[in-house]
């Protein structure tokens, strides 16, 4: 459990701090999310070549751990930004306490259900996510086992181009917890928390000068998440019932965060330091599913269009290039792998 706290709390904090230093920003909540996403992004960058060359899972774990350790050390040693807690102001007015109280109750309720309850109608997706991680650990092969019987199946373009299930395998292996516990309980709680951090960041963006409105926003979002289970495609279902699945993390954490940050960055004039932030978002966005890669491309295109209209001039194409580069490289690799294996493009 200590290792899990290190992965999901300490590493995002330290990486976030380093990112704040590199981008020259004041360290805050936003950088903790960047820290989390950068961990997933770095894992993806390490994963792709090692997967393509069918290296062992142990090698992947070692390489990634060394990189993360080095970056965390750099964050502690080199960064001149003083380590301090993000600024969170406690509610001051009586009315704010009402809204804050409602939010706390709703948050506790969601955490309680995330820890002790489960969807009992899990389907093939859950099976694929969890079992491929289990097989990755037991076979020491990166995402190359057939999930029905665990036999070696080799690299398959559609399932091997995304690192998410292997990332959960990494979390399980290094924490000593079983993959089902990691996915069904630990990540369910962790991504619920991260999703609400993102919602709070959005609240801060929308209602910068009113803590009261931010709290009302958080209450309404909580109610919408809990009671907005209008279909299996709603964020409610994804976040409360299947938060460990890649598409849930994408929909509940990465996409809202990407909208927020792209709006902020695209609205300003080009600055080189922002490229790193955009790269982290776009890289983390393509780690989940191939469909997620398509979503990230549409998101980038949409944000480019609306923000260019907002600015009445084109958003810097360097920004756009960084946003779409990971998706394009991934699609290119998918096509190459598909041609190598099947002699043609297989979707």
């Amino acid at each position: 459990m200590i290792m899990m706290l290190i992965h999901l709390v300490v590493v995002p904090l330290l990486l976030g701090r380093l990112i704040a230093y590199v981008s020259g920003d004041k360290w805050g909540l936003v950088h903790i999310v960047y820290g989390l996403l950068s961990g997933m992004a770095i894992f993806f960058v390490v994963y792709i070549p090692l997967m393509a060359f069918e290296a062992s899972f142990t090698v992947l774990c070692v390489v990634y751990s060394v990189i993360i350790l080095a970056l965390c050390a750099m964050s502690l040693i080199k960064s001149p930004v003083p380590l301090k807690a993000p600024e969170i102001r406690l509610p001051q007015w009586r009315t704010e306490w009402v809204y804050f109280g409602i939010f706390v109750v709703l948050a506790v309720l969601q955490l309680y259900f995330a820890i002790f309850y489960t969807a009992t109608n899990q389907t093939y997706d859950d099976y694929e996510y969890v079992v491929s991680a289990v097989d990755t650990i037991t076979s020491d092969r990166i995402n190359a086992s057939y999930s029905l019987d665990g036999t070696y199946r080799g690299v398959i373009p559609k399932s091997s181009m995304n690192s998410w299930s292997t990332y959960t395998a990494y979390l399980a292996k290094t924490s000593g917890l079983s993959v089902p516990v990691v996915c069904h309980t630990v990540l369910s709680v962790a991504f619920l928390v991260f999703a609400y951090i993102v919602f709070y960041l959005i609240a801060s963006f929308l209602f910068l000068d009113s803590e009261e409105n931010r709290l009302i926003f958080m209450d309404i979002v909580s109610i919408a998440v809990i009671f907005g289970s209008y279909s299996h495609n709603a964020i409610s279902f994804r976040l409360l019932a299947t938060a460990w699945q890649g598409k849930a993390v994408l929909a509940a954490v990465v996409i809202p965060f990407a909208i927020l940050e792209m709006a902020r960055i695209f609205s300003e004039n080009y600055e080189k330091k922002q490229l790193l932030l955009l790269l982290i978002i776009s890289l983390s966005g393509v780690t989940f599913t191939m469909l997620g890669t398509g979503l990230m491309l549409i998101l980038c295109a949409s944000m480019y269009i609306v923000m260019s209209l907002y600015r009445k001039k084109s958003v810097s194409l360097k920004y756009v290039a960084v946003c779409i580069l990971p998706a394009l490289v991934q699609v290119m690799m998918y096509v190459l792998l598909s041609y190598k294996i099947y002699g043609g493009l297989v979707t």
């Binding site: 259900f113 309850y117 009992t120 309404i220 109610i223 009671f227 907005g228 289970s229 409360l240 019932a241």
Partner: peptide, 21 residues
């Protein structure tokens, strides 16, 4: 919003788990 909504928590398939896995 509560009245108009549905929650997974009330679904029959959303149940207390036997264990943390």
């Amino acid at each position: 919003m509560v009245i108009c909504g549905h929650t997974v928590y009330r679904e029959l398939w959303f149940q207390k788990a036997d264990n943390l896995a």
